[in-house]
């Protein structure tokens, strides 16, 4: 998504816009959901940081959209358009998320079962291509040049793959060119005063950065990170007791008294070490998106 944001930013820049683009990092490492934002204007951009009220929100992973903790819906109002990578309909999403604005769907991920992460399509490029069309001011040449700028260091093959995916998405949304419009800047003739408070002093037992309990990390649903889900075939499991459970870096596999392993999907990050290490190959991977659709 960081790269998708950069492609879009560069495309705007090549079209003569002032641009800000940036990824947003949190504590989470590789594999965790990530946000990126892009601002573009014909005038110098004075606003900074997170976009509070987006004109366009692009959701590359639709499993994140309904999760409040992912914050996908933050600041979405009647003016905001959502583009979501999904095989479900716009109406379904609009209803499910109770969105006041328009929703468009981009079916960018393959429905077929793929062998691993490497086979997942270039979702980022698709999102960038689609967004470039929706804003209505980026031509195909600028988009292609931006992809070369941002991905050129990865080699011609990667560029060609991403160009194909991005221009396909760009074409797919031809009818919606310019659907995204700029909202007026916040007026200063009237505003709601900030709800400032006089912070009360609180003793260090409360106000030190200390956690007075163990295991609170389990409240973090790192299962959201998965793009591929490991699934155990109980028929093929040889009840070895230890391989998947010991090698799972995240303590997300436990073995019960009968020797049956159980994957904690709330926390499994989908690294698939278990799949790679299982001696009888009793674990396979299925795309998370499809699996959640099924649930």
């Amino acid at each position: 998504m960081k790269t998708a944001g950069r492609i879009l930013g560069t495309a705007f820049f090549r079209e003569g816009y002032e641009v800000q683009d940036a990824p947003r990092y949190g504590a989470e490492r590789r594999g965790a959901p990530i946000f990126a934002f892009v601002r573009a204007d014909k005038n110098p951009i004075l606003e900074r940081g997170i976009i509070r009220r987006p004109d366009l929100a692009v959701v590359a992973d639709d499993t994140l959209a309904p999760m409040p903790s992912a914050g996908v819906l933050a600041g979405m109002d009647g003016h905001s358009l959502m583009l979501i990578n999904s095989h479900e309909t716009a109406e379904t999403w609009r209803g499910r998320l109770a969105l006041p604005g328009r929703v468009l769907v981009l079916p960018a991920s393959a429905e077929v079962e793929v062998e691993g992460r490497a086979a997942l399509p270039q979702v980022g490029a698709a999102c960038a291509g689609a967004a470039a069309r929706l804003v209505g001011v980026i031509g195909p040449d600028a988009l292609a040049a931006a992809i070369r700028d941002e991905l050129g260091h990865l080699g011609e093959g990667v560029v060609a793959d991403n160009l194909g995916v991005a221009s396909h998405a760009y074409d797919l949304l031809a009818a919606e060119a310019g659907a995204v419009t700029e909202r007026p800047p916040q007026a200063a003739d009237a505003w709601q005063s900030p709800d400032w408070i006089d912070l009360p002093f609180e003793g260090a037992g409360i106000s030190a950065p200390a956690i007075h309990a163990g295991l609170t990390s389990e409240l973090m649903q790192t299962g959201l990170w998965r793009t591929m889900r490991p699934v155990i075939d109980p028929e093929r499991c040889n009840h070895c007791w230890w391989v998947c459970s010991t090698f799972c870096p995240d303590s997300a596999i436990s073995v019960d008294g009968k020797g049956n392993p159980h994957i904690d999907y709330d926390h499994c990050k989908g690294c698939l070490v278990c799949l790679a290490q299982c001696p009888p190959h009793a674990i396979r991977a299925v795309p998370e998106q499809r699996e959640q659709g099924r649930e």
Binding site: G203, A204, G205, A208, P209, A210, I211, H212, A213, G214
Partner: peptide
């Protein structure tokens, strides 16, 4: 007070 290390009371500081 409560800000201290003891085996019986896990504390991340």
């Amino acid at each position: 007070g409560t800000i201290r290390f003891r085996a019986s009371a896990p504390e991340s500081q």
